[in-house]
């Protein structure tokens, strides 16, 4: 009898291992298709956007979604961050793909490039910066980050530039470099490293780039033994490791470590296929927990087949040591 019980228990363990999947926060938000996520340590809420309407909403740990700001002119919202010591949530807005937004139009498609700030005390828009005129080219503001002084750095996936919005709200081109360019989606996720440089990923060629904040013309490829095609959201964790989400069929989050100040880096861990991510786009850090947003944008590209989703999910990232 004991032997049978043990066998049964063992089988259960094997079964649970074979279907193991990390924790998910499911939230109901029909046709939201959120691409950007960030976590507000003070309010203990995730914020997510929407490529479908641009609307901004919050999600709590129980999976309650609440819209906090919307306007028909947002088109699609992408990367977002709450700047610490402020109550401002900064958000990238663009019209990337006519299959995405219900508000997409020829007048904004690949032309719109706005960054807005929502004050999280009032949920009112308190800043709206138009970057489109700074660079003559198509635009897709995809992600943003901030440095220790509160300056913002914004990637444009359709033009080879990084913009800067300083503390006073003044916008400029911070860096321009051919390494940012792609025939499709170029520079995507961007993070500020506490040692004083930016790391960004080129979605089209899979390279990770290091950009010196005090010398933006100094752009170096971080030497890694692989490329990160489809590289999307980035984040630096508390150990100063870089986390990178990849979609476009790769659907993985990898963790990189560097011992030479990001001249080179090594993948030390990654998720595996059994995470069952669906177009993981951007990453949020909640203390020691890492979460990734599953944007499901593949559904929009498939022209409503399968039917549009009503539920989306934020999934905890469980890394497995690289073999």
């Amino acid at each position: 009898m004991k032997k049978i019980s043990l066998t049964g228990a063992l089988m259960l363990v094997i079964l649970s291992l074979s279907v193991a999947q990390s924790r998910r926060i499911n939230f109901q938000a029909p046709q939201l298709y959120p691409e950007g996520i960030t976590y507000d340590q003070q309010k203990k809420l995730f914020y997510v956007g929407s490529v479908r309407t641009g609307a901004i909403g919050s999600v709590d740990e129980q999976g309650n979604y609440k819209e906090i700001y919307k306007s028909n002119d947002l088109i699609s919202s992408f990367g977002m961050k709450v700047v610490p010591a402020t109550t401002r949530l900064w958000i990238c807005l663009s019209d990337q793909n006519p299959l995405y937004s219900i508000y997409s139009s020829p007048s904004t498609l690949k032309k719109m490039a706005r960054v807005i700030a929502i004050d999280l005390k009032t949920n009112k828009k308190v800043a709206d910066v138009d970057l489109a005129s700074l660079y003559n080219g198509p635009h897709f503001l995809n992600d943003l980050t901030y440095d220790t002084k509160g300056n913002l750095y914004i990637t444009d996936s359709f033009s080879p530039v990084i913009y800067k919005i300083d503390q006073s709200g003044k916008a400029s081109i911070f860096a321009q470099n051919e390494l940012f360019r792609s025939a499709a989606t170029g520079l995507n996720g961007i993070v500020f490293h506490p040692s004083g440089f930016l790391l960004a990923v080129n979605n089209g060629d899979g390279t990770i780039l290091k950009i010196a904040v005090n010398n933006p013309s100094d752009v170096q490829k971080v030497a890694v033994d692989r490329l990160f095609s489809g590289g999307d959201g980035l984040i630096i964790d508390k150990q100063n490791r870089l986390l990178i989400a990849q979609n476009k069929g790769i659907n993985k989050v990898s963790c990189l470590e560097s011992i030479d100040n990001w001249k080179s880096a090594k993948v030390i861990a990654a998720t595996d296929a059994y995470a069952r991510f669906q177009f993981p786009s951007t990453i949020a850090l909640q203390n020691d927990k890492i979460w990734v947003l599953n944007a499901k944008l593949d559904e929009l590209k498939a022209k409503n087949n399968p039917p549009p989703s009503k539920t989306f999910f934020i999934q905890q990232v469980e890394l497995k040591a690289a073999k």
Partner: peptide
């Protein structure tokens, strides 16, 4: 071709070591 991603990648082996070390999206969307 990557049917699921909807693009065509371009890979180059610049140092002729048999391993493609550069990649670009040659045709997106």
């Amino acid at each position: 071709t990557r049917r699921d991603a909807g693009d065509i990648l371009m890979l180059k082996d610049l140092d002729n070591d048999g391993r493609y070390e550069t990649l670009k999206t040659a045709w997106g969307n």
